[in-house]
């Protein structure tokens, strides 16, 4: 019997097994909830700062553990002539490092690369854990007639996504300030340089129409404020983009099996794999792009004026 037929037979057997399991063990599925559920009775008792261990927090730790174990595994066999696993790891790291260099330039790339790479790996793995949702949603603790899943993809917890977005935006500001000095950097948002101009015009040191100076200055200030708001809005768009995509994917993966149990969910799983990859990539690349904008383009803009 050829290999193809063997695979086909395996697939058919798996399908029959799924059908049988669905018929004989109709399992309950946890209700869809936006907020991550704390696991009952599990709290890290820091006085004044109790941390309830939610299912997504547990999964975050699991994700970290997997990533660190993978890193250790790759590191254990590091040699000058690479084997297969080292090749894969090197391709990933080198590809991302090249991307960082392309976006941020050779000066800042070594600084930004580890941040973006960590974001990418962390988000990617937690996105892909989301593919297990149909199983994870059924494995849980029964509490007051409701199932609380033990594991839940971190990307479907706003704490995780907002935390990452905060890190990304705060680090962007930090590097912007480090590159330009904090007075010059914040001058990008709070534009009141026109006041000095106005005083010069009013005292007659410079010619000009005071009304026009005030009008242009107010527009300038307003633009600066808009930039400040867009900076803050980045946190929202970063976190809700990731959360929305992955949470919607989870909802789809949970709902589709109720409509059509066989094969169709597989298509959506493929879609979700792609979405998870793209979202992780976008999170990392946008972080890189914003950081390099903060350190570079602002200065160039000033020189151009």
């Amino acid at each position: 019997m050829s290999k193809t037929w063997l695979y086909a037979l395996g697939a058919i057997v798996a399908l029959v097994l799924i059908v049988a399991i669905r018929i004989y063990f109709p399992f309950a599925v946890a209700p869809i909830k936006v907020a991550a559920e704390p696991l009952p009775g599990l709290v890290i008792p820091i006085p004044g700062f109790p941390i309830p261990i939610t299912n997504s927090l547990l999964t975050t730790w699991l994700t970290m553990l997997i990533l660190i174990l993978l890193a250790l595994w790759v590191r254990s066999g590091l040699q000058s002539v690479p084997n297969r696993k080292q090749n894969a790891a090197e391709m990933l790291v080198e590809g991302f490092s090249g991307l960082a260099e392309g976006i941020a330039g050779p000066k800042w790339a070594p600084t930004f690369f580890p941040i973006a790479m960590t974001i990418f790996l962390f988000v990617l793995l937690s996105n892909w854990l989301d593919l297990l949702t149909p199983i994870l949603a059924a494995v849980g603790i029964q509490e007051q007639g409701e199932i609380i899943p033990i594991l839940r993809s971190p990307s479907t917890d706003l704490n995780f996504t907002v935390g990452l977005a905060l890190i990304s935006v705060v680090l962007t500001q930090y590097y912007g300030m480090r590159a330009h000095g904090w007075i010059r950097y914040w001058g990008r948002f709070i534009k009141i340089g026109w006041v000095g101009n106005l005083i010069a015009v009013l005292t007659g040191k410079r010619k000009g129409n005071p009304g026009a100076v005030i009008a242009m200055g107010l527009i300038d200030t307003f633009m600066g404020l808009i930039e400040l708001i867009s900076e803050i809005a980045k946190i929202l768009s970063f976190s809700f983009r990731l959360f929305g995509n992955i949470f919607a994917g989870e909802v789809v993966l949970l709902v589709i099996p109720f409509l059509l149990s066989f094969l169709v969910p597989l298509i959506f799983m493929g879609l979700e794999t792609f979405v998870g990859l793209i979202q992780a990539f976008i999170f990392a690349v946008l972080t890189l792009a914003f950081m390099s904008l903060a350190v570079a383009s602002h200065g160039a803009e000033h020189e151009a004026h």
């Binding site: 907020a35 975050t60 990533l67 917890d157 935390g163 890190i167």
Partner: peptide, 18 residues
């Protein structure tokens, strides 16, 4: 929405450790 400062800080700490 399930956002709590404690969990947020924990997640940020997680990221830093990782």
């Amino acid at each position: 929405l399930g956002i709590s400062p404690n969990l947020l800080l924990t997640q940020i700490l997680n990221f830093i450790i990782l």
